[in-house]
């Protein structure tokens, strides 16, 4: 057991170190991509906590992502808040929204849960459009560079942006690692594997799933807030169904229920689309075909398959 713990920490710290080094080695175009991927990976990690570990297949996470993004952006845009409190508000908004949705949606399960979360997210998206005088509607709004300074550091500049994304990513990944190796992480997995059995071990399924969903919402919220802040744009696109599908795709690709899977999936999917758009504009097809192929031939994803083929210790 001790040896494995060492291996696990070494692997994850090595990933962080490699990502730190990458900014010096990669051309700027790829470094910026990587910053994007790291923030999206935080979103996908949150999705993975609900779907991969607890078995909650949601189609409405864009609501939590957008809640975080708008809770960060609107106070800056309308009330001239500073970025740090705005970012914290984004984090909280994701969690609160997930809690509110969970209180209702977790009364259902399976297919009903998917549709209920989808409907809530759709209502959220439409609300953003409906309140367009406040939210900027379809067009969204730009977060001005002047409002993206933290203590004199300009988050719009390449290096600080990369480091901020890496910092968030590292915190998210280590937090996730700690969570899934904690006793509560074990209970989340137990819920996924067999809810009735877990109930008869004294765990309240509703409570466990609600907590997992709120944690998942916190990840989505802070990712949405960071995405808006680092890349300077807040828009209703991020609340559409596509942004609920993307983290699911990343997680399925990288491996549901693995700590590094969401990052790996985001990386692979991002570049798959990027490369495909080099010779075709059919990126929708790439997404669709990837979804179908994964669910048909590799439902465990990259790391899930590796774990099955020998790397049993992979968390």
């Amino acid at each position: 057991m001790k040896g494995e713990t060492g291996k696990i920490w070494t692997l994850h710290l090595a990933v962080i170190a490699a990502l730190f080094a990458a900014q010096f080695l990669l051309p700027q175009y790829h470094a910026t991509n990587l910053a994007r991927i790291m923030v999206l990976a935080v979103y996908a990690m949150g999705y993975n906590i609900a779907f991969g570990y607890t078995g909650l297949l949601s189609l409405g996470h864009a609501l939590f992502f957008a809640a975080g993004m708008y809770a960060m952006g609107l106070p800056i845009w309308q009330l001239e808040w500073l970025p740090v409190p705005a970012l914290i508000l984004g984090l909280v908004a994701g969690g609160v929204m997930a809690g509110a949705v969970g209180l209702l949606a977790l009364r259902t399960a399976g297919v009903s849960f998917m549709i209920v979360t989808l409907m809530f997210a759709q209502a959220g998206y439409l609300t953003l459009l409906y309140l367009n005088t406040w939210t900027g509607g379809d067009e969204g709004f730009v977060v001005e560079r002047a409002y993206r300074m933290i203590g004199g550091v300009d988050l719009a500049a390449d290096t600080p942006r990369y480091l901020a994304a890496l910092g968030l990513f590292s915190a998210g990944m280590l937090g996730c690692l700690w969570l899934v190796r904690s006793p509560f992480g074990r209970v989340m997995v137990a819920m996924r594997e067999n809810e009735e059995r877990s109930r008869m071990l004294g765990f309240n399924p509703f409570r466990v799933k609600l907590i997992a969903l709120v944690i998942s919402g916190l990840y989505a919220g802070v990712a949405g807030a960071a995405y808006g802040l680092l890349f300077g744009y807040v828009g209703a696109t991020f609340a559409t169904i596509q942004y609920s599908i993307l983290p699911m795709l990343y997680v399925l690709m990288g491996g549901a229920g693995t700590v590094l899977g969401p990052f790996l999936g985001a990386l692979a999917m991002f570049y798959l689309i990027d490369i495909a758009s080099g010779f075709t504009d059919a990126w929708l097809f790439v997404v669709g075909a990837a979804l179908v192929a994964l669910i048909l031939f590799a439902p465990k994803g990259i790391l899930g398959t590796l774990r099955e083929r020998g790397l049993k210790w992979l968390p």
């Binding site: 006793p183 074990r186 209970v187 997995v189 137990a190 594997e193 067999n194 009735e196 059995r197 877990s198 109930r199 008869m200 071990l201 004294g202 765990f203 309240n204 399924p205």
Partner: peptide, 29 residues
């Protein structure tokens, strides 16, 4: 689940362990 916490445990008629978890995790839960 609240009765279990009060001390009423039930073992299933059909074996109902978590097959994809380790024996340790099963008992640790």
């Amino acid at each position: 689940h609240a009765r279990v916490k009060k001390g009423v445990a039930y073992t299933f008629q059909i074996t109902s362990v978590y097959p994809r978890l380790s024996v340790f995790d099963n008992v640790a839960l």
